[in-house]
Design a protein around this nucleic acid. Structure first.
Length: 189
DNA sequence: AGTGCGATTGACT
DNA sequence: GTCAATCGCACTA
């Protein structure tokens, strides 16, 4: 696993994210990420460690899950060494496994909208605070990162979504041409 | 104790 | 394309 945040954000595109539920499994291919490296004023770790963001300071590869806008859970991977704050936001997933169950979690039928956006993918995969702080690479967690199921396409970089600070930095990565990424369609190509 | 504000989404024009 | 709901948390007093 790469040792810096930006490289990790690129590396995660094409890998899988899987959640083992009591009776079944849901998961998919990561097609879009955003990097929040050390020293980035837009990152939750920027102002130091607090009870809310403590998982960002765990060794790289742990889950940081936070609640945004009163309704959405967002799923991140910690990306630095223990004690240093940094993370990668998982923004969109190409659904692969347990699609019928994910549709039920989202009460929605369109496959392309199932996991297109950080809050949507967390809802589809039933990810919430209970999974915060888990080691995503240990092999023992119900939420885990898996290897790529097929070769990844061209990875493109653009500006991150929804920020006021550091808005110019191109730290959003996505698989070119994927219909499963979030944001305006014009950014697809 | 009170205030302000999002790493968003879904509904609506 | 625009816009407001919603609430946990950080920050100020």
């Amino acid at each position: 696993m790469p040792v810096d945040t930006v490289t990790l954000a690129r590396y995660l595109v094409g890998k899988t994210l899987v959640h083992d539920l009591p009776r079944s499994r849901v998961g998919g291919r990561i097609v879009e990420t955003e990097a929040y490296p050390v020293g980035d004023a837009a990152g939750h770790a920027f102002r130091g460690q607090t009870p809310r963001n403590r998982s960002l300071f765990l060794e790289r590869g742990h889950a940081y899950i936070y609640f945004a806008y009163g309704s959405c859970w967002c799923t991140n991977v910690s990306s630095e060494t223990c004690g240093v704050g940094g993370g990668v936001l998982i923004r969109a997933l190409e659904p692969l496994e347990g699609i019928a169950l994910m549709r039920r979690h989202r009460a929605l039928s369109r496959l392309f909208d199932l996991a297109r956006g950080p809050g949507r993918l967390s809802a589809a995969m039933r990810i919430d605070r209970r999974l915060d702080g888990l080691d995503l690479c240990s092999g023992a967690s119900p939420l885990w990162l898996g290897t790529a199921v097929r070769p990844v396409g061209e990875i493109r970089a653009t500006t991150r979504i929804g920020l006021s600070r550091e808005a110019h930095r191109t730290l959003r990565f996505y698989e070119r041409g994927s219909p499963f990424i979030s944001g305006p369609r014009r950014l697809l190509s």
